[in-house]
Simulated scan of single mutants.
Amino acid sequence: MKTPIKAVLQRRPGVVLATVAILAGGILAGCGSDGADSDGDVAATLIIKTQGTSYFQRMAEGAEASAKELGVDLTVAAGKVDGDEDTQIQAIENAISRGDQGIIITPNGPSVVDALARAKDAGLYVVALDTVPDPADDVDITYATDNYRAGQLIGEWTAVKLDGDDAVIALLDLFDDKVLTVDYERNQGFLDGMGIDLNDPEVNGDEDPQGTYTGGQGGSYEIVGNQASEGTEDGGRTAAETLLSKNPDINVIYGINEPAAYGGFQALEAAGRSDGLITVAIDGACDGVNYVEEGTLQATAQQFPKIMAEKGVEAVHALATGGEKPQPEEGEEFVNTGTEIVAAEALPGVESVSVEDGLATCF
């Protein structure tokens, strides 16, 4: 997730702009259907985590396209950085003050989820994207990747790729000062997919640091440690350097996303330790798929943010106009928008798509 989006997302041509504001470095802009005015029947706000990634750019594009089709007056806001709760909370308060019918959001943390309760109390429909809030019923519906399953898939692929070799693993997580479901679900899913026994599946770093993995041909493993990367290339590089100082024999890097994984690869390459390195990640951004093509990453689990956002706008429109509330499959807390492994090398027993196919659906 590297490509920056515009500082302000512009309204579609021919659309009257109701409000444009800058939220302490975040973004706020309106969009809607051609010919619609600011007094449309349904108004909603999309609040993304940050304006600085292609992932959320794709999400905003999907929401804007759906809003245009349905005639929804859409406002788009963003945190200054991933993890910025204050700006998102202000955007929630603004949506309540404007009288929006709905909020579609990728929450940056627990305080944001608390603020969503005020929106629901004010009568707004709340749809989460990308990450299931904890608890899930703090929102009306969530559209998301099954992050645990995405982690499992990339873990299964990694175990097969190891072909019975010992695994010395560096885990480049998201944060170490807050707990987000996306962080532990991807991490724990990856370890589970490799066939490493978990302790608490909602806690990163409490597994046995050494043991055996049962995925693929099976073998011995050592977890060198968990380090926060903040989902950035620089953060991934620093995290990997820290872990490399603990054990120079790292041969597997798991990254919460592709920038973190790429930064980790750079650290090992600079140390002359990249030969035979298996570097994997989750997201499926175009940069990440290109990293797979060039061999910097060996595989990534691709998700589909555009579909999430389209479904989110559709859900708010349906709820606000008396339609049926969307429901996840029985036993699930969210509607799964899918994931698939993109790899240059097809491995036996692990489903994947080619780099060419990944580039056709990347963001």
Rank of each mutant, 00 (worst) to 15 (best):
P326T: 04
T321R: 15
A21C: 14
K2R: 14
A281I: 08
T53A: 11
L129Y: 01
P326Y: 01
D275L: 07
A270Q: 13
I48E: 00
S97A: 15
T53P: 05
L74R: 08
N199K: 08
K49T: 15
V316K: 07
L17N: 06
V15G: 07
G83H: 09
E185F: 04
G151A: 02
D192E: 15
S220L: 09
M59A: 13
L268H: 01
N251F: 01
N94I: 02
I154A: 06
P348C: 01
P328N: 03
G52K: 14
G288R: 00
A117D: 12
L70V: 06
I307E: 12
V355C: 05
S97C: 11
G358K: 02
N257C: 09
Q88D: 10
V139A: 10
D86L: 13
L129R: 01
D39G: 11
L319V: 01
N251A: 09
G331F: 05
D82H: 07
D177Y: 12
Q266F: 07
S33V: 13
A299P: 09
F304S: 01
T337D: 02
H317M: 05
E258L: 04
I92A: 11
D197W: 08
D130Q: 05
S38N: 10
L243T: 02
A343I: 01
M1Y: 08
G26N: 06
G25I: 05
L359Y: 04
D200N: 15
A21T: 11
I278Q: 09
D121S: 07
L70F: 08
S274C: 02
N204Q: 06
D73N: 10
L198H: 07
G235T: 08
G331Q: 04
G83I: 09
A65R: 12
V168H: 08
V126I: 13
A115L: 03
V316M: 09
G30I: 12
A122C: 06
L28I: 04
D183V: 13
T238M: 03
V72K: 12
P348M: 00
Y221L: 14
G14C: 06
L124E: 11
Q88R: 07
S97L: 14
V313A: 12
L28M: 10
E356N: 01
A122L: 07
T75L: 15
E329V: 15
N336L: 02
G62P: 13
A91M: 03
F304G: 00
S354I: 00
Q57S: 14
I103M: 13
Q90H: 10
T279C: 11
T214K: 11
